[in-house]
């Protein structure tokens, strides 16, 4: 049986590379009983359509940035709370704490989780040097969802909505002067042409999730399911490794482009942490008891 696997990011992205290896592992491991064909770059379904497509069996398996669905349920945004888990290790802990809830939530939607791989940590890009939150006041800040708009509000910056495809142009023309994103975004968009500073605040590490339609999953032989789960473990491990490698690579790229890359000042870090607490509390209100359980479990570790 062939499983077409829609993926949202370009074939050269490390998530897509991980997915392609996973597909090959499954195809070989099951002796062709399940053959996975990846379709990167949103060539089958666009990113926003992938979850629903898998949910309804239009595609058996797919990959999606799950925090994209936080309008639907705040729980999906657990990995995108600013300054809650600010390192690969913390992000791992947070994921372990949240996994049961997310699996349960996905199960209700006819989805079975296979593996999750983080993006490089999110840092702050600025045109000029910034050493405290007070200095951010009035700076035009790229927002792309409600959380980033709220972050702008709390830091006194002016949110401007800019789609991913328009980032480099927006900075070049001064439509925006700051953003929060991973090092890879800035590297891909060559933002050093207009921005000078990247602060490694590691605000959060969003994840891509690979999930399969539960009915199709249950209809697959146990032997195949075991192989697929094994391949998923390998993919998760390899993906994590790649994410770390890629973080270093892109930050070096930003440096080579002429940007100042480094940690934020102590004062700024402390102030951002406070804003993070505010936003964590707001998220907890939206996500209810289940959300509280996740954060408590994470903090207890």
């Amino acid at each position: 049986e062939t499983w077409d696997m829609p993926m949202a990011y370009s074939a050269s992205n490390f998530h897509s590379a991980t997915g392609a290896e996973f597909a090959e592992c499954v195809t070989t491991g099951t002796g062709g009983e399940v053959e996975i064909k990846t379709h990167p770059s949103g060539s089958l379904f666009k990113g926003a359509d992938i979850k629903r497509a898998v949910q309804t069996g239009q595609a058996p398996i797919g990959e999606r940035l799950l925090s994209g669905h936080q309008n639907e349920n705040a729980l999906f945004g657990f990995d995108s709370i600013p300054f809650l888990a600010t390192s690969f290790d913390d992000s791992d802990k947070l994921w372990r704490a949240a996994k049961p809830s997310i699996e349960k939530l996905l199960a209700e939607q006819n989805l079975t989780l296979l593996y999750a791989v983080p993006w490089p940590p999110q840092g702050l890009y600025f045109k000029n040097e910034v050493t405290s939150v007070a200095e951010m006041k009035g700076i035009k800040f790229r927002s792309y969802n409600n959380a980033t708009s709220r972050l702008a509000e709390l830091t006194g910056m002016l949110p401007v909505t800019i789609e991913a495809a328009e980032i480099s142009q927006a900075f070049a023309t001064g439509v925006a002067e700051a953003m929060i994103s991973s090092g890879s975004t800035g590297y891909d968009r060559k933002v050093w042409e207009s921005l000078g500073y990247f602060y490694e605040v590691d605000a959060w590490l969003p994840r891509n999730y690979v999930f399969v339609n539960t009915e199709i999953w249950n209809g697959t032989s146990e032997a195949s399911r075991n192989v697929i789960m094994g391949c998923a473990k390998l993919a998760e491990y390899a993906g994590n490794w790649r994410a770390k490698e890629y973080t270093g690579f892109t930050l070096q790229g930003l440096r080579d482009g002429g940007m100042n890359v480094g940690p934020a000042s102590e004062q700024m870090t402390a102030e951002l942490k406070e804003i993070g607490d505010t936003m964590t509390n707001e998220w907890l209100e939206a996500a209810g008891d289940e959300g509280k359980a996740i954060v408590d479990a994470f903090r207890a570790e």
Partner: peptide, 12 residues
């Protein structure tokens, strides 16, 4: 394919 054609058509 064995996928539900009508649903795929609408999504796209």
């Amino acid at each position: 394919t064995t996928r539900p054609v009508g649903d795929v058509m609408l999504t796209t």
